[in-house]
Structure formats: C-alpha cells, structure tokens
Design a binder for these strands. Sequence first.
DNA 1: ATAGATCTGTGTCTTTGGTTACCGTAATCC
DNA 2: GGATTACGGTAACCAAAGACACAGATCTAT
Lengths: 210, 210
Amino acid sequence: MVTELYKTFDAQFELDLIDEIAEVGKFVEVSAGEILMDIGNYIKSMPLLLSGAIKVLREDEEGDELLLYYLEQGETCSVTMACCMGHTKSEIRAIAETDSMIVMVPVQKMEEWMAKYKGWRNYVFESYHNRLNELLNTVDSIAFKNLDQRLVDYLKKKVEVNNDNRIRNTHQEIAYDLHTSRVVVSRLLKKLEKMKKLALHRNYIRVLDL
Amino acid sequence: MVTELYKTFDAQFELDLIDEIAEVGKFVEVSAGEILMDIGNYIKSMPLLLSGAIKVLREDEEGDELLLYYLEQGETCSVTMACCMGHTKSEIRAIAETDSMIVMVPVQKMEEWMAKYKGWRNYVFESYHNRLNELLNTVDSIAFKNLDQRLVDYLKKKVEVNNDNRIRNTHQEIAYDLHTSRVVVSRLLKKLEKMKKLALHRNYIRVLDL
DNA sequence: ATAGATCTGTGTCTTTGGTTACCGTAATCC
DNA sequence: GGATTACGGTAACCAAAGACACAGATCTAT
C-alpha cells in the first residue's frame, strides 16, 4: 500500500510528508458499492484516493438523489475536508464506484501539514479548486442542459471512470443518479439505441459511440 | 477605508496581517451594477469585500445566465481565488449588487500569507467552505425545487442582501437570474400577489410576507 | 403633445419530462 | 417446475414551464 502512496503522490508531495502520511494514515480497501461516508456523519479524517473511483452524491429531504461528481486517483473530497475543518456533519454521501484503495488522514495532521509542507498546501488548494469546478459543471449541466444531453454526458463519464464500455447498471440506478424516473431513462436509452450509439441488454449497456 | 478593514477583519486576522493588507491592498469603491469580473478575464488579485454585496453568476455558451450566490461583508470569492492560483481564466461573472467597498490583494501575497498567518489560512479555508456550501445549496435549489419555491427563495434573499423590502428590478431581470423567461416570472409573481405575499408595481416589488 | 420604448398582464399552444399502468421476459428461489 | 421478483418496453395521460402573440399602461425624449 505504501508503494501505492509513493506512486500516487511522488510528484507533488515532499518525501517527509509521504513518510508522515504512511505513518499516521490508515489504509483502507473498499469494494464497489460500499458507502464511505453518509449524510449526517461526523468526520474525523479525510480520505486520499490511491486507486479506484468514488462517486459523490447529494440527497434532499425526500430522499431524492443527485450525482455530483466522481473522485479519481490522487483526489480527495473537499466537501468532506470542509466538514472536517468546520466540525460540521457531512453534507454528502460517498459511495465506492469501483473497488478502491484509500488512505485516511486524521484532521489534526491536516492543519499541521498545512503550515509545514508547501506540497500539501498546494494539494489541498488544488483539490478545492477542482471540486469547485466540478460543482460548477454540475450546475451547468442541470441548469442549462436537457435530459438527453445529461444522460449522454453521464454515460460517457461512466465509461471513462470505470474504464469499461459496458455499463453494469439498471435503468433504475441511472435514474437515481440523474434524479429522474426509470421510465424516462428507458425511453431515452431506447432512443440512443435506435441511433446506434449503444446496445441495450439486461443489467448492462454496451456503449458504442456517443 | 482602513477603518473599514479593521472593522471587518479585526476578529479573525492578526494585526500584522491587517497592516500588510492595508499596505499592499488596493481599495476600490464600486456602485451597484458595475461588473467586477467577467468570464474569460485573467485575474491577478483577489477581492475582500468590506461592505456591500456582490452577486456571482454563471453563463453558458448561449449567454443564458444563472445566479449562483451573493457575497456579503467579510467574504471573498473562492472561485476567483481558485482561478488566481491555477492561473486560469475566470469561470464566473461578478456584479456589484449594491454600492460596495472592496480591497484587492495581489495573488502572490496570498500564497505568502498562507504560510505566515494562521488567521489567513483559516479565512481562506472558511471561504472555500462557505462557497462550496452555497454552491451545494444552488444545486439543491435547481435540482430539487420547482420554480415557485425558487422564486420565493430568490426574493427573500434579495430582501436580505439589499436590506430593503422593495425589490427594484423588472421581471425580465429576475428571469435572467433564475434562468427562466419573463412571462413565467410575471405569472408566478401575480400568483404571489394574489396570495397577498407581495405587491407589484412598475419597476419594483414590495415584499409583504413570504 | 406625440412617438417610441419599456414594462407588465394574459390567453393559447407546445415541449419536456414525470406518472401510472400493464405486459413480457429473464433471473431467482424454494 | 412453478411461484416470485426484478428488469425493461411501451402506451396513455398529465403537469410544469417555455414560446408566441398581443394589448394596455407608463415612462422618456423631442
């Protein structure tokens, strides 16, 4: 696992910092579908993603969901970080999209390293920057695009994140992520199939050319 | 103006830091409606808001707009900050909602202070935190709420930010902020008027009880 | 005062997407 | 093997909001 740590952060972190992370960090392996963090949880450590992908989503009072974005290798969840620092409850739910390796770093260290390591400061900033931009994209998507386009974007992203052009999800699961209904998703997928952009099967979709 | 600086940041910044800001910062007064920053601009300094309010909005390729959030006293625009640090173009437009006083701080100082002052680090983090939360609220709003509710929320916020229960805007202007059409806004406002929640006039709306 | 521009109200129609209902088929479970 | 459940296809209907058209009111400029 420490190897993974070096591989992922060698370029941006000081060696001393990597050693410190290896020392105090808790390494965790999770499998696809596991909930890493839920709305209302208190958070005492922040996750650095060594491999795999995590999906981050938002839920309203009625339990309606919406996918916000994915975290990929080397990234961390700024929303979580923000919660840590503010000692507030999590505002989001994080679920492993694929099997993933994570190192959990206690919050106190976070602050300490901020003063001590430039590499860490930059990393934390860049994370915030990236998350803000992802959130802006999410806003754009739901504000300016219609469902057809959002679905296509969603499928593309899914193929990229999973590195597999078979999407192993039911229409209902896709509907949850896009915050719409199963019937609507089926309808639009059928349309895309007729346009030869994908092939529909039970429990999976083969993406041909989006 | 320096008085304003002390008044606004006394509680959270070290005295030395405030002195440094006073020294290198450029004080600017803007009047309502002035564009502070536009999409595509390069940014070399970040704004600290001493008084007034700034509205921050997003635009898509077709020129459709959407209000993201307001900045109020003591706040700064993290999206701008993110652009500064990343040396990328602005992703957003910022317009003075009311007459405002601002101090502009050069980016280089930002990094320097980050290592030097704990108060500054905390401030910058808290800003990111606040902006992320505002953006999450925006997402919630457009994803989960219908236009009726969004309009009511918008009007409430407007009253609060301007500290005036007369909203001096045309229906068209409101429609731009909510990314909808003038006709729809007129329709919904009329409905609210019939419910005695507000009184409609030419060029302004008096909010009674939302 | 007159002409033009701006703002608001309203009726009608269309589109997008959500809802309900029902069916066939594939998987699963005794 | 028969019952049950999960998944996907499809039709019919509905609701929210956007598009268009036009009228009346009010403001502005000359």
